[in-house]
């Protein structure tokens, strides 16, 4: 509703606003659309378009059949799913208790430990020593190298902690009077009240693990263990052809371009599928936390 005191916008102003917003939205959506349509196009459609396809003509799923039939891409998708699920679980299991444990000023060691956590914002260890430590503790070529070094993100810790500090203290105190231990309070009282912030922070972690690329470049040499981003980089940006199995069926192989775009689509899909459900919590869960922290 327009407030009564606000003047009516001019036609030119409205048109300009609409144009700018439409342009912004299109700039985001067109590349996604082109990738999707091209991945679903047959060889004839791609040849007729001279490459990437903008206008869909029929649906051809053969590119997806190829990448899910086994081979390097299926393997990478499996690895990325594994890393994302395990990593997010580990991260939440570390971050949430730490945030709760440091949410009460005056508990033993509170100041020192909090300082220990927050100081990491100011100190940056550097690539070389981190590399030496991660390889030094024997994580070279282990998927844990993609998880453990980034398992706790101090920004996320601050967000969760600020949220916990905003919960009504009387609620926790009365549970304590009733004899509930801290673990029980966290599990039974605090967590059910914190679904929004856990969803947001969980999404941040999950996206981080799904997107992991540089850590894999550093620590993973075995291409059986490549996550999807690493495969995407080697064969789209560096121009190698992926090894796919199931080529001996006798049917013509779908064009490489369709396969490439299908990989792009399956890399985007999990993010695009999960994020809208969490989006409505962003402002409430994150900004409040960040501002208070």
């Amino acid at each position: 509703m327009r407030p009564v005191w606000e003047e009516k916008p001019g036609v030119a102003g409205q048109a300009a606003k609409g144009t700018v917003l439409t342009a912004v939205v299109l700039v985001v959506l067109v590349p996604l659309w082109v990738a999707l349509v091209t991945s679903l196009s047959s060889r004839a459609t791609i040849n007729a378009a001279g490459g990437l396809v903008f206008v869909p003509r029929g649906i051809d799923m053969s590119a997806y059949r190829i990448i899910f039939a086994g081979g390097q891409i299926s393997q990478a998708l499996w690895i990325s799913t594994l890393v994302t699920v395990c990593g997010t679980l580990v991260s939440l299991l570390v971050t949430i208790p730490a945030a709760y444990g440091l949410s009460r000023p005056g508990s033993v060691g509170h100041r020192g430990l909090l300082f220990f956590f927050l100081l990491t914002f100011l100190i940056y260890p550097g690539l070389v020593p981190s590399y030496l430590v991660v390889t030094g503790v024997g994580l070279k070529d282990s998927l844990w190298a993609l998880i453990l070094p980034s398992a706790i993100n101090v920004f996320n810790f601050v967000v969760v902690r600020a949220f916990f500090q905003g919960l009504p203290a009387e609620l926790l105190d009365s549970a304590r009077v009733d004899g509930a231990g801290e673990f029980r309070i966290l599990w039974r009282i605090v967590l059910p009240l914190s679904k929004a912030v856990v969803a947001v922070v969980g999404l941040f972690y999950a996206v981080g693990y799904w997107n992991v690329w540089f850590s894999a470049l550093l620590y993973i040499d075995d291409n059986e263990k490549f996550p999807i981003q690493r495969v995407l980089q080697t064969f789209i940006l560096a121009g190698q052809t992926p090894q796919t199995s199931g080529t001996a069926v006798g049917t013509a192989l779908p064009p490489t371009l369709a396969i490439k775009m299908a990989v792009v689509v399956v890399t985007v899909a999990p993010i695009a599928a999960v994020y809208p459900f969490v989006q409505r919590h962003f402002t409430r869960g994150v900004i409040l936390g960040a501002v208070k922290g």
Binding site: L93, V94, T95, P97, A98, Y100, G101, L102, R104, S107, V108, G109, L113, F116, F117, T120, I123, P125, G126, V128, P129, S130, L132, V133, V134, V137, L148, P149, S150, A151, I152, V154, F157, G181, E182, F183, L186
Partner: peptide
């Protein structure tokens, strides 16, 4: 408060190993 300390421990250990040890490792 010991349960609170137990809760903080895993996170603190991770930061120690993957943040502070590398920071000291800058002696290289």
């Amino acid at each position: 408060d010991w349960p609170l300390l137990v809760m903080v421990l895993p996170g603190a250990l991770l930061l120690l190993v993957f943040h502070y040890v590398p920071t000291l490792g800058n002696v290289v």
